[in-house]
Design a binder for these strands. Sequence first.
DNA 1: GACTATCTTAAGACTTTCTTCATAATTACA
DNA 2: TGTAATTATGAAGAAAGTCTTAAGATAGTC
Lengths: 229, 229
Amino acid sequence: MAKFTVLVADDDQDIRDGIEIYLKNEGYDVLKAADGKEALELLEANDVHLLILDIMMPNMDGITATFKIREVRNIPIIMLSAKAEDSDKIHGLSVGADDYVTKPFHPMELMARVKSQLRRYIQFGTYDGQKKIEVDGLVLDEEAKEITVEGDVVKLTPIEYKITELLMKNAGRVFSINEIYERVWNEAAYNAENIVAVHIRKIREKIEADPKNPRYVKVVWGIGYKIEK
Amino acid sequence: MAKFTVLVADDDQDIRDGIEIYLKNEGYDVLKAADGKEALELLEANDVHLLILDIMMPNMDGITATFKIREVRNIPIIMLSAKAEDSDKIHGLSVGADDYVTKPFHPMELMARVKSQLRRYIQFGTYDGQKKIEVDGLVLDEEAKEITVEGDVVKLTPIEYKITELLMKNAGRVFSINEIYERVWNEAAYNAENIVAVHIRKIREKIEADPKNPRYVKVVWGIGYKIEK
DNA sequence: GACTATCTTAAGACTTTCTTCATAATTACA
DNA sequence: TGTAATTATGAAGAAAGTCTTAAGATAGTC
């Protein structure tokens, strides 16, 4: 397989260098930019296949840069944002990005997303705008951050949405309680049973006709939860 | 379930030994190093899956060691430090550590982080699509943690699933009762005959059309059980 | 600073699974 | 064929895991 080139744009040099080390270990070529303007210049001068873009940068922020890039090219863009920033707002603004990761992130997770985006890029040749997932009568609209059951909009809280999103995007796969906690809260699971159980129950109350006999969010006793494909 | 090997590098022997006890209790193999240099040597000579690294060490400190390691490998690194300052935390992570724990820490919290990192490492490192194993009409779906017989889903409990998984992944091989107990329960077998037999029986009840004349889970008299290839 | 949403924690109820024990059935072999 | 060793079975209490309720903590908003 030909080598891919990844452009990393972040104003923090430690983060740039850290990401570079991981990417090189995975066999990618790496270019680095300290701000959005520099990123655009490098993008024009080189054959770049994927872009990792911090939102907060001097000269030109990541969102503006994304708009500029999208006018010309369709390469995968992964956005980085600080956890402190309002993630909902960021998500809303970051239309045009293919994926986004909140800091602090686990390097291996970023690598996984890079791989996944490149796979998609290669496979479809271009980014496909499909942002709806459907399982049975349950629909997840990633752009509107909205879930509908048989056409009716259901109002979920951020955590409830993220759990449902995780289960729907991986429908059929069972997630242990710890896994759910780690992927939604983005921190190591420690006594997570109860809190996840409470949120699962809230989700069921909202999306299940009969929460006692759930049609979507099913328990796999002793292992975890899943939404059937 | 393959065993994981964790390398603990700390100049304080009490801490090394303490962590070792907890790790072994969780079923991990443990290697120990007293400084960064020793850690690097052990890392080269052994198949290590995760590294717990103290920052303050003679010969080579944890941060330098992390740099060296990252030039070659992407394994999870958890850093230990006596300092609780935030700047250290960020520095440690940006330098390539995956997680960070400040002393004094609760051993179980460290264990939770070890588990969490290994989960990520496995999930993101080796993921390649659908994982299914088939033997005769028996199919094991590792993602759904589900087993189907001639297309029909069979509901197994965690222990039943693990036993079936062991036998299917090594179809054709005979496992003694003690071996099954040790690999599934992850502890030394002692009077395991009956309990394994009970679970085998439950499995047969669920996956065999005629439990008296089992088609899949066969006994090898005086030796153990197997599932034929 | 009060109000509202949401999140977290705790405790007990409830359900499923695991283990144990007693006993029965099967196999190997003298 | 008889006997000892091994495996199979049924039932019940113990243990583990999940669900539910409710109240306190926290964060965002006006």
